[in-house]
Design a binder for these strands. Structure first.
Length: 433
RNA sequence: GUGGCUGUAGUUCAGUUGGUAGAGCACAUGAUUGUGGUUCAUGUUGUCGUGGGUUCGAGCCCCAUCAGCCACCCCA
């Protein structure tokens, strides 16, 4: 926004030319690409149908506390990236940075698990994180996800992963890899963290500055540091999977078995670390290494303590979330087409005032009978209107001028086949459908 | 939050050692008094991201700022 001051005669005229720009890290979904979104969303909903997951929609803001307690106050998502604000009564809310906690909140609040049934839910919507924008990373971004709450059966773990791979398959995406891991239960991961600290402590001075803070905050993050010297040290670090107890490792084995049965290809990566604190047992990531730094197109895992933490019963759950922008990017890099732009069936071309009058009725009649019609009242010449019909990729042009008016007909032209014929106005709909 | 690169027409970009802004595509009109994807001709479009500074003069040099891109970080 800026102010321009012009001299006009003896007095100053101040022109306030406001120039609004969209907030950093956000973007508009323009008509030229919106159909791609619809395509991906429809495909996701179709997949949900196949697996019998039901849609749930929650608000885009919640009690800030919900996220702070569930994701972990020390996680970057909560500590530096959350949009927090106070309303007029001083309550502290946050724009949701992720989708799982709100779904679990709704599950508990509405007693969705009241009958002991496993709830299979899916969602889609905008999430918000105050990150520095980058390829595949925005401040308002869109995630779709599913949550299966109520079962600890490893079959469900595999099913959730199979869901995501089925979805990607429907889209035609093949440029990705699936990595899985088990982070065990709370006791196991706490013990592992202690072991890791003991392992890295003697090397503290050789670590990069990021890793020095990681050592105290989240030792597991040290495992996927990109600095070569840190990598070298981490190479010999103890492996999570060796610290799983009987129950955890049996669960993991079962998950792998079911994945094999589902025909999902995966690799076990014991270094997978989930960013949010609530994850337990199975953790997985879908990675596309052609995307650049932001290569996770989807990820998820089990969260057996979360429901209780949010105030419900001790009910297990598992889910995943995928990033719409990154899926779209993946499809672009793989050269995949993504749905079709909608186009009108009929482009109306009236010539002259009387014809325009007559065509209003025709347009109304076509539309009420389910035929999509485009007409641009700001174009008048035949040539311009034909050009526009072509550009709109209309199937037919309906031409009406004095000649047609006299006979009570219209000229129906098939633009693809370049053929045309005169048809009675009353027969127009049946000639098109 | 840190670093690097970039910001000129609707769009993709060019713009020489500082001398009052250019091309392709797109768009509009015509060749064809009522017939579109090709031609051909003609034409329109600019707070040169924003604010300041240096200079007789800045798209170009300097400072600041905003935005985009890429990486770190983080994560979907």
């Amino acid at each position: 926004m800026y102010i321009k001051i012009c001299q006009k005669n003896d007095y100053e005229v101040r022109i306030l030319a406001s120039k609004y720009k969209l907030p950093r890290g956000t973007y508009d979904i323009l008509p030229e690409t919106s159909y791609q979104w619809q395509y991906i969303l429809n495909t996701f909903r179709d997949t949900a149908k196949l697996f019998n997951f039901k849609e749930i929609v929650t608000p885009i803001f919640e009690d800030a506390d919900l996220f702070e307690r569930s994701s972990g106050e020390t996680s970057d998502v909560v500590s530096k990236e959350m949009y927090r604000f106070q309303d007029r009564k001083g309550r502290t809310f946050a724009l949701r940075p992720e989708g799982t906690a709100p779904v679990v909140r709704s599950f508990v609040e509405n007693n969705l698990g009241g009958q002991g049934e496993t709830q299979k839910l899916f969602y889609f919507g905008p999430m918000f994180r105050y990150d520095r924008p980058q390829k595949g990373r925005y401040r308002q971004f869109y995630q779709f996800g599913i949550e299966a709450i109520g079962s600890n059966n490893p079959f469900v773990d595999a099913e959730v992963i199979f869901f995501f791979s089925t979805f990607l398959k429907k889209l035609g995406l093949t440029d990705y890899e699936v990595e899985i891991n088990s982070v065990g239960n709370k006791a196991v991961s706490d013990r592992y963290d202690t072991v890791l600290k003991e392992f890295f402590q003697p090397h503290k001075d050789e670590l990069c500055s990021d890793c020095k803070t990681r050592l105290d905050k989240k030792p597991r993050r040290l495992l996927d540091c990109k600095v070569p010297s840190c990598k070298e040290i981490a190479k010999d670090a103890p492996v999570m999977l060796d610290y799983l107890d009987q129950e955890c490792s049996e669960h993991f084995e079962q998950v792998k078995k079911y994945l094999d049965s589902f025909g999902v290809k995966y690799t076990v990566n014991p270094k997978i670390v989930r960013g949010l604190d609530y994850y337990t047992h199975t953790a997985f990531e879908f990675l596309n290494n052609k995307l650049g730094a932001q290569n996770a197109i989807g990820a998820g895992g089990r969260y057996n303590g979360l429901v209780q933490q949010v105030g419900g019963k001790d009910v297990p759950g598992i889910g995943f979330a995928g990033g719409l922008e990154r899926i779209l990017l993946s499809m672009e890099t793989q050269g995949l087409f993504c749905g079709n732009q909608t186009q009108p069936t009929v482009y109306m071309i009236p010539m002259g005032a009387k014809a325009i009058e007559a065509s209003v009725e025709i347009i109304a009649n076509l539309r009420t009978n389910g035929v999509s019609v485009e007409y641009n009242p700001d174009k008048s010449s035949m040539k311009a209107q034909m050009k526009a019909a072509d550009k709109n990729k209309a199937k037919y042009a309906v031409i009406i001028g004095d000649e047609e008016l006299d006979k009570g007909v219209v000229t129906l032209k098939n633009l693809m086949e370049r053929t045309q014929s005169e048809v009675q106005i009353s027969d127009l709909v049946s000639n098109i459908l």
